[in-house]
Design a protein around this nucleic acid. Structure first.
Lengths: 263, 263
DNA sequence: GAGTGGTCTAGACCACCAC
DNA sequence: TGGTGGTCTAGACCACTCT
């Protein structure tokens, strides 16, 4: 093993800064200036204890800090590693252009094909249920009015990338393939347009927060990775909201791109 | 004190789930179903130790988990409290409409006035420096080509809400008030349009991550709060990028709203 | 079996806050 | 001054991974 070259400095016990934070600082710098590269193993807890001459809880607190920042992940029995950043997927502002629906693809499939990835949808559940408050407001239905709720999980090459729940007024969904697990070519939006309700625009409301435990489990998120919450409302040409889609996406895997007018 | 009503359950020592996680689960449920309200104090570490009959490090791990999720904040010498969510500010998709500039207001001031808050800008620094790689690409200049860099911090009613850094090609900035700390009425965009370069559109690239330590300090962020990173590129009517603005915003204080075309 | 991280105990001293 | 959280020590036993 010959000792870790990255361990050169010692902590300053007279400093105001807590010892565990100083250790975290050393490791953070090593990661950020490339002395520790993506996927590489950090010194073990035992090595850090010996080098800095501190108790185990102290080095664990330092490592905990790096994990919370999303810089490191631990693997039981193997070690602590510099987190590998997933390739970032850019969601373009024209991703709901009608030409995609015309080609018989739902938005997600159209997007993923363009990057040569294999898309999957699982955990599909369709039911009728009351609309939650913020959704009802966007859909312009009474709070707790029954709507059709479609939830599902999207994966790309086997990695879960999105949890989505759509809310559709019952009069637009009942008796259509929107009630089926597979809504057919072009997805929900194509089924809505078939009813003569041409879509005109979408409003997306983007927020971010730390995931709940359930979300972290379903999206295989490590600690220190926030999620995007994206609430999209689809409007038809008459200005009526015809669908609200509430999606949760890993924050480290997406870049959302939008166009704004200057006039 | 009469004991905490929220402490009713005990942990199951035979469960696979770690004791500290079970304690965190109890507290999380109490917060989420309203038994512990915003701003309210959690039971102290000593109380939790006694109730669950565990060591101090165990209850501290439970509390640590809640803090990482952004559900609680600790105050030295006072206690641990249910995190107060700041009022969420909605950024509308028409916020760069020219009418705001015509009224002599920069975008930030126009926005904040509409909600009746007092806006401040501090930590203003203007300098010439090489453009970072991702910025240079958006600005279509060579990597490390010198550009004008304007950084500043925005506050609302005394609370810091945004760290922003603008990059402007030197030929558009030198000799104008863009080089001044105060760029004048209507902000940078107004100064650019005065040079006959009418703005046509903006592209905003939105990402999210945990803040660096420096960002958490400048934005007064607690643990467990992610940030938005928003990179906005401004284009003139000829399609030339005339400014790139890189901003960091507390993720719990903003909701970004965008409009997407369906055609 | 040796090495790793995960969990937990039972203390200690300190800094900060409210009374 | 007593209660609070912040930091740190020095152990223990366990589960997991690799060889």
């Amino acid at each position: 093993m010959a000792g870790h070259q990255i361990l050169v400095r010692q902590v300053d016990p007279t400093s105001d800064r807590a010892v565990f934070r100083q250790i975290a600082d050393h490791l953070r710098e090593a990661i950020q200036d490339g002395r520790l590269r993506t996927g590489e193993k950090l010194p073990s807890e035992a090595q850090l204890m010996e080098h800095y001459n501190v108790a185990r809880m102290t080095v664990r607190q330092a490592i905990q800090e790096l994990k919370a920042e999303g810089l490191a992940v631990s693997e039981h029995g193997r070690g602590v590693f510099v987190r590998a950043r997933p390739p970032v997927k850019r969601l373009a502002f024209d991703r709901f252009a009608r030409r995609h629906r015309k080609e018989g693809k739902a938005a997600f499939l159209a997007e993923s094909e363009s990057v040569g990835a294999k898309a999957d949808v699982d955990m599909i559940k369709v039911r009728e249920a009351p609309a939650p408050g913020d959704i009802a407001e966007r859909l312009r239905v009474s709070p707790d009015e029954t709507v059709v709720v479609r939830s599902r999980r999207y994966s790309l090459d086997g990695t879960p990338v999105e949890l989505a729940t759509s809310y559709i007024p019952v009069d637009l969904a009942r008796g259509t393939r929107i009630m089926d697990d597979n809504p057919g070519p072009g997805g929900i939006y194509a089924r809505i347009e078939e009813q003569g309700r041409q879509l005109e625009r979408f409003i997306e409301d983007v927020s971010t927060r730390m995931p709940t435990h359930e979300e972290a489990r379903l999206l295989l998120l490590g600690p220190g990775v926030p999620v995007f919450r994206l609430i999209r409302t689809a409007y038809d040409v008459e200005g009526r909201p015809v669908e609200v889609c509430d999606t949760i996406m890993p924050g480290d895997a997406y870049l959302l791109s939008y166009e704004l007018p200057a006039h």
